[in-house]
């Protein structure tokens, strides 16, 4: 338990010192959102388009930022030392925790930007949106951490990451879009009960499977 915290703390403090991921990610989000703004111009798109585009931006910012945790270890050549001082499970959970915090931070920024910039992005049922936001971030962090671990051993890391992660994340993203649409229409939470069950089961499956297979990835 303590080791999980230490690994999280190590990543967190080196991130605070360098601000590599955070700065790049914030810029990425601004660029992505402004591209959408330019392409829409002064036209008003239908409401459900905004729900879709919100999660598109979330997906791509996760893809550009979350692979750093493992890739940087490989680049700096510190992964061997890391595997000496901690067991694989705590390494995975520490990295997962860091990614979780990072994606919560980034996604809150995206949500605020969306509410500020698009008048049509009006959430009427905050309860179901926030619940989906929580579960969705958890699932995105779980899948992208394990894919990042796979990718860090490969040669072309940047381009491969979204390619590998997209099919794995798609069930989650589709459900999140459905829930966001219904939250924007102000439907009660019971309407999307099935989608929430899918989200919960996805999160549980992904985190369990990741913990099980991470051991094999990590040991060279």
């Amino acid at each position: 338990m303590k080791k999980i915290y230490y690994i999280f703390y190590k990543d967190f403090s080196s991130e605070l010192r360098m601000r590599f991921a955070i700065n790049a990610l914030i810029m990425f989000v601004i660029v992505a959102v402004s591209t959408i703004l330019f392409s829409l111009g002064s036209e008003n798109a239908p409401q459900n388009v905004y729900a879709g585009m919100f999660w598109v931006v979330v997906f791509f910012s996760a893809m550009s930022g979350l692979s750093r945790t493992f890739v940087s270890e490989e680049e700096r050549g510190t992964s061997l030392i890391l595997s000496l001082i901690a067991n694989p499970i705590s390494i995975f959970l520490g990295k997962f925790l860091f990614n979780l915090v990072l994606i919560f931070f980034i996604n809150s920024i995206i949500t605020m930007l969306y509410m500020f910039l698009f008048q049509e992005f009006l959430i009427k049922n905050w309860m179901s949106f926030l619940l989906a936001f929580l579960l969705g971030n958890f699932g995105i962090a779980a899948s992208s951490t394990i894919i990042a671990a796979i990718i860090s051993k490969a040669n072309v890391k940047g381009t491969l990451y979204p390619v590998l992660a997209f099919p794995v994340l798609l069930p989650l993203i589709l459900m999140l879009i459905e829930i966001t649409k219904s939250a924007m229409e102000g439907n009660p939470i019971n309407d999307v009960e099935a989608e929430f069950l899918v989200l919960v089961s996805y999160d549980v499956i992904m985190i369990t499977a990741s913990i099980l297979v991470f051991d094999i990835i990590w040991r060279d």
Partner: peptide
Amino acid sequence: YSIIAFLT
């Protein structure tokens, strides 16, 4: 990867 992708 084939295991993880299979889970979906």
